[in-house]
Amino acid sequence: MASVSTIYTMGTFLSRAEGLGQRVRVLVEGNWITGTPLSCDGHGVILDSGAEGQFLVRVEAISAASYALPEATVPRPRPHEGSGDRVRDDADDRAYEGTYATVASLS
């Protein structure tokens, strides 16, 4: 019986995401970067992170990758009754919108 094996690489994953226009998250030196692949040549990938700009990442430096889920608000604990905590308002919600970690620069 012949066996068929497939080797999945970061380049394959990122090229497929580029073709689909799918946002991804990549783990580089312990930091997650989120963006849409604009170009991937097997050595590097350009990720467009919107307002945060574009990142050029070496494919060999990526430890893990995933398709990015749509942005969601970050859940926060509710104040307990009688704890004296103030009631949160809409300004508190805006402070948490789109919160996620990124890398400012890569060396």
Score class of each variant (00 low, 15 high):
Val87Asn: 10
Gln54Gly: 00
Ala61Gly: 00
Gln54Ser: 07
Ser5Ala: 12
Ser107Phe: 08
Val59Ser: 00
Val4Asn: 10
Met1Thr: 14
Ala91Gln: 13
Arg94Leu: 11
Ile7Ser: 13
Leu38Glu: 05
Val59Lys: 00
Thr9Cys: 02
Gly35Lys: 02
Leu38Lys: 07
Ala2Arg: 14
Thr36Glu: 06
Thr73His: 07
Asn31Trp: 10
Val28Trp: 01
Thr12Tyr: 07
Thr12Arg: 13
Ser5Gln: 14
Arg25Tyr: 05
His43Trp: 04
Val4Leu: 15
Thr34Gly: 02
Asp92Ile: 09
Gly19Ser: 14
Trp32Tyr: 05
Arg86Trp: 08
Asn31Pro: 05
Ala72Ile: 05
Ile62Asp: 00
Thr102Ile: 13
Ala91Tyr: 10
Ile7Gln: 15
Tyr96Ala: 09
Leu47Val: 02
Thr6Val: 12
Val103Glu: 12
Asn31His: 10
Gly19Trp: 09
Ser5Leu: 12
Ala72Asp: 03
Glu60Ile: 08
Leu14Trp: 06
Ser107Val: 09
Trp32Phe: 05
Asp48Gln: 02
Arg23Tyr: 12
Ser83Trp: 02
Val59Cys: 01
Asn31Met: 13
Gln22Met: 11
Ser83Ile: 01
Ser39His: 11
Arg78Cys: 09
Tyr8Lys: 14
Met1Lys: 15
Arg16Phe: 08
Glu81Tyr: 14
Val26Gly: 06
Tyr8Met: 13
Ala65Thr: 01
Glu18Thr: 08
Met10Gly: 03
Asp85Met: 14
Arg25Ile: 13
Val74Leu: 07
Gly11Glu: 13
Val103Thr: 14
Glu71Lys: 04
Asp90Cys: 08
Gln54Glu: 04
Met1Gly: 15
Phe55Tyr: 15
Leu56Tyr: 09
Leu56Asn: 08
Met10Trp: 01
Gly19His: 14
Gln54Met: 03
Asp90Arg: 14
Val103Cys: 13
Val4Gly: 06
Gly19Met: 11
Gly84Thr: 03
Asp41Trp: 00
Asp89Tyr: 09
Ser83Gly: 06
Ala2Phe: 12
Ser15Cys: 07
Gly50Thr: 04
Gly82Thr: 02
Thr34Lys: 04
Asp48Pro: 00
Trp32Cys: 01
Tyr67Met: 03
Ile33Glu: 01
Thr73Lys: 06
Thr12Ser: 12
Ala17Lys: 03
Asp90Gly: 07
Ser49Pro: 05
Ser66Pro: 02
Arg94Ser: 11
Ala61Lys: 07
Ser49Gly: 14
Ser15Pro: 02
Val24Phe: 06
Arg88Glu: 12
Asp89Ala: 12
Leu47Gln: 00
Val87Thr: 14
Thr102Ala: 11
Ala61Tyr: 03
Tyr100Gly: 10
Glu52Gly: 03
Ser49Asn: 07
Glu18Val: 05
Val59Asp: 00
Leu69Arg: 08
Glu71Ser: 08
Ala2Trp: 11
Arg23Asp: 13
Val57Ala: 00
Ala68Trp: 01
Asp41Pro: 00
Leu14Cys: 08
Gly30Arg: 04
Gly19Arg: 15
Gly30Ser: 06
Ala68Gly: 01
Arg76Val: 15
Glu29His: 12
Asp93Ile: 09
Val59Arg: 00
Pro37Tyr: 00
Arg94Pro: 03
Glu71Tyr: 04
Asn31Phe: 11
Gly84His: 02
Thr99Pro: 07
Arg76Gly: 09
Trp32Lys: 05
Glu97Tyr: 08
Asp90Val: 11
Ser15Asp: 12
